[in-house]
Amino acid sequence: MIDFILWVLHNIALAPYYLFTAITNPGAWLDWSNPEAVMRFIYYGASVELFFVVFTTFLIITVLGMAWNREILWWGVRILETFANAVGRTAAWAGLLMVLIQVIIVFLQRIFRVAEIQLGPFGTALTQDLSWWAEGLKFWNAIVVCLCVTYTFVQGGHVRVDLVYSAVKFRTKRMIDMVGSLIFMMPAIVITYLYAWFFMWRHLMTPTITSTSELDRMLAQARIFRWNVETIGFSPNGFNAYFLFKVLIVLFCALVFLHAMAFFWRSYLEWREGEASEGKYLDRDKTGDEAEDIEHALHSGSS
């Protein structure tokens, strides 16, 4: 246990050095014309070093906000929640696009018996079989699921089962939220990210790499590196860009981790400042129907 604590403290102390080294040597991991730089990017993208840079940044902001000025944390909450809302509100349009594509497919296939759709609004035609567009509907759905997750969290739209939570006092709720974000939300999404990161890269390049691959071994494998983007569909003429789903999983993990930070800060600030601060700076959508907005606020846990 003591060794683990010392290891954590050691990496926290070295986090500024890790960040400084990455910033001052961008060519070592951003020059993708060099296979070794790609391998470094892959390795450090899910490394202990990156984790402690992010964790130490979170720790420093939290300590400064708690010990010096709470407005620092409120600014963090506002920035991250605004970012979540902006991404979610943009990605939500994929739902409309998904419905429109489905309607077009039904009309063209069932009524006009068309076998393919050709689009060329900018002079370059994209011609694909109807089965390609039909299977691609899963991609638009995945965009909504992965990129709207934190937006839905901010809006209070996730399903809740508050058997204990709803019965306790305001400050106890905020304590539960803080513990939940630190003990459950952050560790779960970090583990998911570690698997998702290497899962994504296994479908973008060769040779195969894993989460246990060491940097020296990966640099040695750089000699046989080549891009091998997955373009195989489940059917002969089906959707063939399934690597995009792997990218979305990584983006999902990044969004959830960032919002876990914002959720912890908001929970702490509301616990510290009391019920008067509940929903402070919270940007939630309005339907225009006051009764419906009140009902939504009640179901989402807001007063």
Rank of each mutant, 00 (worst) to 15 (best):
V161H: 00
R40F: 00
E290P: 07
M39C: 02
W74R: 06
A84N: 03
H299L: 15
F41R: 11
R113Q: 03
M175Y: 01
T152E: 13
M200E: 03
M261A: 06
V161I: 08
Q221D: 14
I176S: 00
W201L: 05
N240C: 11
P16Y: 13
I183F: 09
G156A: 05
P26E: 07
V106H: 06
A297P: 00
A167S: 12
I224D: 13
G238S: 08
D162R: 15
L215R: 10
T231D: 09
T82M: 10
F234M: 12
V149L: 14
A28D: 07
R113P: 00
F122R: 07
V63N: 04
V54Y: 07
R284A: 05
G136E: 03
V250N: 09
T56K: 13
R223A: 13
H158G: 03
A241C: 01
C253R: 08
A142D: 10
F139K: 00
R174S: 02
S213T: 10
L163R: 09
N69R: 14
I105G: 08
V247D: 04
F58C: 00
V77S: 14
L204E: 01
G233K: 07
L251V: 14
F4M: 10
A84K: 04
S47M: 10
F83N: 01
I294A: 10
A262G: 12
G233M: 10
F20E: 02
